[in-house]
Design a protein around this nucleic acid. Sequence first.
DNA 1: GTGAAAGCGCTAACAG
DNA 2: CTGTTAGCGCTTTCAC
Lengths: 337, 337
Amino acid sequence: MATLGDVAARAGVSISAVSRVLSNHPSARVSEATRVRIVDAARDLQYRPNFAGRALKSARTQVIGLVVPDLTNALFTELMHGAEDEARACDYTVLLGRSDDVRPGGEVIERLIGEGRVDGMVVQVGDGVPPAGLGDLLASNAPIVLINSAYPGHVGSVALDDETGARLATQHLVDLGHRDIVLANGLPRSFTAKRRRVGYQRALTDAGIAVDRTRELRLGYTAANGRAALRRLLALEVRPSAVVVANVNAAVGLLAEARAHGIRVPDDLSVVCVHDSWTAENTWPPLTAVKMQFYAMGRTAVRGVIARIETGAMVDEVITDPAPELIVRESTAPYPS
Amino acid sequence: MATLGDVAARAGVSISAVSRVLSNHPSARVSEATRVRIVDAARDLQYRPNFAGRALKSARTQVIGLVVPDLTNALFTELMHGAEDEARACDYTVLLGRSDDVRPGGEVIERLIGEGRVDGMVVQVGDGVPPAGLGDLLASNAPIVLINSAYPGHVGSVALDDETGARLATQHLVDLGHRDIVLANGLPRSFTAKRRRVGYQRALTDAGIAVDRTRELRLGYTAANGRAALRRLLALEVRPSAVVVANVNAAVGLLAEARAHGIRVPDDLSVVCVHDSWTAENTWPPLTAVKMQFYAMGRTAVRGVIARIETGAMVDEVITDPAPELIVRESTAPYPS
DNA sequence: GTGAAAGCGCTAACAG
DNA sequence: CTGTTAGCGCTTTCAC
């Protein structure tokens, strides 16, 4: 690979002149002639600035780490796009990582920051035990923005409007005439589950329907959890006519399990879920879902980390604009009169 | 962050002594006493080697880039795990990237290598137009291993055994008594589609069934492509009794479209697909699928890049062990007699 | 056994 | 306008 020195030699100028020109330094008062010579030489040699050299000198990598529990979860498609778009706009790059990595020595987050591989991070901690050592890191005031998750005392987070999302989903069922609506939620300790629960209860209360704790299942966000939720539903004394599933992946599992048990959706059971993804349109029946604004969350989170890096500011935000959006498909139907 | 200098100062030794001890250099002939002092000091200061410093000096990053068309495709879960496990075993780290990035300036691969962010790459080029400039890169003999894809003349690739995969799927239908079996394949120019087609034809030929080109659809690997394939099926003069779908995502779409048209699976149509993922067990009916060995491919590909980096060797491999594995679920049934 | 010193590629302050 | 120079954190050769 060509270095600044190579370019300088070819253009017949000094290394610093090349550096100034190629990084459009504001103080690059350079004659047009040499500028052209330098640019030409760089092109001819296919010059690319060496990452390590630049990072070492400037103590900056222009890289933001994005760490989520499961990278291949289709839900994160938009999150990544949002993060990348914002990063690109600010001259940063996004580095992806997984946090489900609980193996010893797999303290990804600490390493990325500690070794100076990234300037800051956007992290979603899973619903299980938070990665050991994360507390120390956050306390150390590193440029970390949490998404869809929380850590006691940490400032610097961006969350989706889970409450509104769950409320819209529940409201939709209420509007269809349902009164006995079960919530198939995430694990009780989960940050998002708590918020979705509030939205669910609020919709019921607004409609004058009594909230009943026995109608709240708290199993988790995977397809297997959704299947388990359906079985719990079947075991109830009185079967609900509708269910709000707090996650689209769980809803996919719930739907499959319903077919297996001969429950017809939406005739016997209306199903609506929080989160949309390509899978939701390809179930049968296609799932009515509340689309959450992952793209905006990605952009906002990255913007937040960069602000923290460059100005020191740190805030907690909730994405309310655009608002969560109900997408009616065919898994919900009016309550049979 | 603490530097070597900080640790040296605290331990009362020279920087080079610290460097030798902390990187277990073979020539680290150090007295046990100083070794202990150094290790203690490093621990106290929470020393972490600076990535840029090390990379700059050694001209090595110990990072392998893994670039696939769509990171959130659930199919890639195992691929990433395989790549990461092998990388960890060889003291490397994996950096994830997307290649669907056709925006101008978005030549991810060239940048990662050219700027020295990675030592080598594992790349799957999509089925569309190969990224501009990839040819130059490959010609430049960079340490790049292609997976599930090909580039004219390039040596250095790892592929799944697509032919066997498609053959097993087709064979399964033949064994069930089906004779008129359609192949819903990827785009004709696609590397994998060609190979799967061969396997499909081979199974038919082996069973003494004539190959009929009009029974081969070539639409692509997305759910939408699968839906389109189903509609094509319906438009055929004579409806087949079974279909081999070359990709699980397409199969999910095909299944949903079938329900929408009142086609019963497997009664009216048996469906088997190539590739397995969590979605395949959560459709209705659950999809009979051929599990391909993504984990092994991930490991092998990373091993290949590292071998290339460290020894210069470069080969083309096909993952035949473990072999593709038929997983029978409920989307296939015997041909009605 | 241990330390001094050079240099990887780059930026920026300073000199001319 | 342009060149010289120091130094970021690290590894490694060489000298003691």
